[in-house]
Design a protein around this nucleic acid. Structure first.
Lengths: 241, 241
DNA sequence: GCCCTTCTCCTTGTATACCAGTTGGCATAC
DNA sequence: GTATGCCAACTGGTATACAAGGAGAAGGGC
């Protein structure tokens, strides 16, 4: 099923729409387009140098995926961060990943993908990575786990959910303590899978994701608080009543 | 947040793209466009009487949702029914609905939506409905159950998955025995929820969906065969070579 | 008769033109 | 000074025009 979408990719020439889609999504993830930002299709046309047709196609896709909103004849907006929605997506991840663990532990042999993950996460302190790349590695861990369970549709849904969360998930890897905990917890989950301890694996995973969810909430609230203070300072400087 | 999507709806005028999207999806569901059928954008333009732009928007959306495929400069195709994918989607439903049941049974009180469902499904034989409408009622049952659990994102994903399955799910309600079983099983699940028997509810639901999954596979093969024969007769009547 | 080449038509992808409706500002009346 | 109504510019939705490339038929060589 996943392969069905790749037919064009074989031609090595993604369409203009797809490149613009990827470019815009990257801009959103890089906060080059801030949540709440207003813009028009003409703005994007000017930035990417294409015509409205592929730009609109990309925008509509991003809208369906929850990143943008369109107001009829009043312009586009980067959808503001909604913590309630993000936390609900975290909970969807818990449900999907625990279901995947259940299936993985019921298998006669751990799939090769699981064994490969052990080589990444069950390593001594010296070989552990940090910074930005770890965020991608973390996503790969969870994505591979679900994919290894064998349900392609579940994997696709999980991938979309994870990507949607990724914009705030990255913030969790800015603290050394959280990085260390991630390595330990991933290793523990893998060990539980290899030992066929389904209940243990599910409990570890639930806690792992729930802690991340709560940490990100704190970090984001902190960011929001700072943004509000900055906003207040600027208002004061401007002399606005 | 949900209200933000309603801005256009307030104007009571869905866009042309959306109407075409709904129309095409209905045609797919009614087997007016058969799985495997090939067609071009010009064909659709002629049928719906709009220009290519909104038609393309609708087609692209249906493609992202898994109903269609596009072959570069070779036209469009209704994605053939893929039983592996459909069964995987059924399994996703099992996972999501069981998670919803878990949450529902953990609540202090059953939400009003659950109580309302009892009035529909826990009824004597005389008040039971049959035929086409039951299919929609069934979808409403499962959708409401997940929605009542309180996770909007999970409900949205579940709704999309259910809709995708619906094309074959309907066929399950053409047999009296299956209709009767559906009433009984839904009533049993609701009772388990009201009595806070999470494990029982989950087991009943798992079996309920799994049986449906297996039944539908059999029926679909039969229906598809009939549709192809009808299609062939019409072609013959039209004198198409 | 069969295979290979070529050429034309048709396909989707992209760019542009047109339309209806919204918005914000400016002129005007009070 | 304030309120109000109108207008012009701008917006997304829709229609049309153009471009590039592939599928398949037609025709020539053998």
């Amino acid at each position: 099923m996943a392969a069905m979408h790749t037919r064009r990719r074989a031609g090595a020439s993604p369409t203009l729409s797809e490149r613009i889609y990827a470019q815009l999504k990257q801009m959103i993830f890089d906060f080059e387009l801030l949540p709440g930002d207003l813009f028009s299709e003409a703005d994007i046309v000017a930035r990417v140098g294409a015509s409205r047709t592929p730009v609109r196609e990309a925008l509509q896709r991003l809208r369906r995926e929850g990143y943008l909103e369109v107001h009829l004849r009043s312009g586009w907006q980067v959808r503001p961060l909604d913590f309630r929605t993000l936390e609900q997506l975290y909970d969807v991840r818990i449900v999907l990943e625990c279901a995947a663990l259940e299936r993985l532990c019921a298998m006669a042999e751990p799939p090769p993908a699981i064994v490969a993950l052990c080589g990444v996460w069950d390593v001594p302190l010296a070989r552990r990575r940090g910074d930005e790349a770890l965020s991608e590695e973390d996503r790969a861990f969870h994505t591979s786990l679900v994919a290894a369970a064998g349900n392609d549709e579940m994997a696709r849904i999980h991938r979309d959910v994870s990507e949607r969360i990724h914009i705030v998930r990255r913030l969790d890897f800015t603290q050394a303590a959280r990085i260390s905990a991630t390595y330990d917890e991933h290793a523990a989950i893998l060990e539980a899978i290899v030992r066929r301890r389904a209940d243990l694996a599910k409990r570890l995973m639930s806690d792992h994701i729930a802690v991340s969810r709560d940490e990100v909430r704190k970090i984001t609230l902190h960011m929001l608080h700072e943004a509000r203070e900055r906003h207040a300072r600027e208002e004061k400087a401007w002399g606005t009543p």
